[in-house]
């Protein structure tokens, strides 16, 4: 245990070094899933929110956060699961969006979240218009959705009709 407790800003910086296990180019703080860091006496509490409620990476993320902080000399810490308000892709930072694109994943575009009320007709129209989701490889917006689901719960599968490459879209949520 260090002689003096590190500031919460210091801990935020440290957590900025913890990569997301599925998309290692972005950190857990850039994804917006670390919601609060606070001291309760000499106990550090880190509140983490799941991206998707069944995301299998949740346990791995908790473990990565815990072991990283222990590596910084913090011994008394507790991770707290925070559900409310639910995570949204709005909290993915701008820097992370650029990193996602460079990594080959199209970042979330506002207005592509499902709301259930747009069932069928509207959804299919939206599925065709694609709201200008740009191919991360060539930048073309001439793209089409293959599936609302992809390699992880947070992604959808798209295809570029110009460069013909398939790509992942980090869907709006």
């Amino acid at each position: 245990m260090p002689d003096t407790l590190p500031s919460t800003d210091q801990v935020w910086d440290w957590l900025g070094e913890v990569p997301d296990p599925e998309i290692p180019v972005v950190s857990v703080t850039e994804l917006g899933i670390v919601r609060e860091i606070r001291w309760e006496g000499d106990l550090l509490v880190v509140a983490v929110t799941p991206t998707y409620s069944g995301c299998p990476a949740t346990a791995v993320i908790d473990l990565a956060i815990e072991s990283h902080l222990r590596g910084k000399g913090l011994e008394k810490l507790r991770l707290e699961r925070r559900l409310s308000p639910p995570w949204t892709t709005d909290w993915v930072s701008d820097a992370a969006r650029d990193k996602l694109r460079a990594y080959g994943i199209a970042p979330p575009v506002d207005g592509t979240a499902s709301d259930g009320r747009t069932a069928s007709r509207a959804a299919r129209i939206a599925g065709r218009s694609n709201l200008a989701i740009a191919c991360p490889r060539c930048g073309s917006t001439h793209t089409e959705r293959i599936s609302q689901f992809g390699s992880t719960p947070c992604k959808a599968s798209y295809r570029c009709r110009d460069c013909l490459e398939p790509f992942d879209y980090f869907k709006c949520h």
Partner: peptide
């Protein structure tokens, strides 16, 4: 300091 510490309002469980 990260973006999140500024934009996310802490809220008790």
């Amino acid at each position: 300091m990260s973006v999140q510490s500024e934009t996310i309002t802490p809220q008790a469980p």
